[in-house]
Simulated scan of single mutants.
Amino acid sequence: MPTPAKFYLEDLSVGQIFTSGTAQLDEKAIVEFARSYDPQPFHLDASAAKDTLFEGLAASGWHTASTTMRLLVEGGMPVAGGLIGAGVEVSWPKPTRPGDTLQVTSEITRVTPSRSRPDRGIVTVRSETSNQDGHIVQIMTSKLVVFSRSTGQDDMIRG
Results as ranks from 00 to 15, higher is better:
110 R>Y: 03
81 G>I: 01
57 L>D: 11
95 P>A: 14
158 R>L: 08
123 V>K: 00
117 R>E: 07
54 F>L: 15
72 L>M: 14
128 E>Y: 04
98 P>F: 00
47 S>P: 01
90 V>G: 01
65 A>I: 14
71 L>N: 08
85 G>E: 05
111 V>G: 02
53 L>W: 03
62 W>G: 13
148 S>E: 03
155 D>L: 10
134 G>C: 02
79 V>S: 02
99 G>W: 00
97 R>F: 01
76 G>M: 08
88 V>L: 13
46 A>E: 13
42 F>W: 06
109 T>W: 09
42 F>H: 14
63 H>N: 15
77 M>R: 04
157 I>P: 10
55 E>Y: 01
93 P>D: 13
96 T>G: 14
113 P>V: 01
143 K>P: 06
84 I>H: 04
145 V>S: 05
136 I>D: 07
84 I>R: 12
152 G>S: 04
51 D>F: 00
130 S>M: 09
82 G>L: 09
116 S>V: 03
77 M>Q: 08
47 S>K: 12
141 T>W: 02
149 R>T: 01
138 Q>M: 15
46 A>G: 05
80 A>Y: 01
130 S>C: 08
107 E>I: 08
111 V>H: 04
97 R>V: 10
59 A>L: 12
156 M>V: 02
100 D>V: 05
104 V>W: 07
130 S>G: 02
122 I>E: 10
60 S>V: 13
144 L>W: 13
48 A>Q: 11
106 S>M: 08
85 G>L: 11
122 I>F: 07
116 S>I: 04
86 A>H: 05
158 R>N: 04
119 D>C: 00
87 G>Y: 00
110 R>C: 06
155 D>W: 01
42 F>Y: 12
113 P>C: 03
70 R>N: 09
93 P>E: 09
37 Y>Q: 14
98 P>S: 07
157 I>E: 05
152 G>L: 06
153 Q>L: 04
146 V>F: 07
135 H>V: 06
127 S>F: 12
95 P>D: 12
92 W>V: 15
80 A>N: 04
148 S>Y: 00
114 S>P: 11
150 S>R: 09
146 V>S: 05
104 V>K: 07
68 T>E: 12
114 S>Y: 02
93 P>F: 09
137 V>H: 09
134 G>W: 01
153 Q>I: 00
155 D>G: 03
45 D>G: 05
77 M>A: 07
100 D>I: 02
58 A>Q: 07
110 R>E: 10
89 E>P: 08
76 G>A: 06
100 D>R: 07
57 L>S: 11
152 G>F: 01
94 K>I: 00
61 G>N: 13
58 A>N: 09
98 P>L: 05
154 D>Q: 12
103 Q>Y: 02
138 Q>K: 06
154 D>M: 09
125 V>H: 05
62 W>D: 15
76 G>D: 03
72 L>K: 11
88 V>S: 14
92 W>E: 13
80 A>K: 04
64 T>G: 13
58 A>V: 14
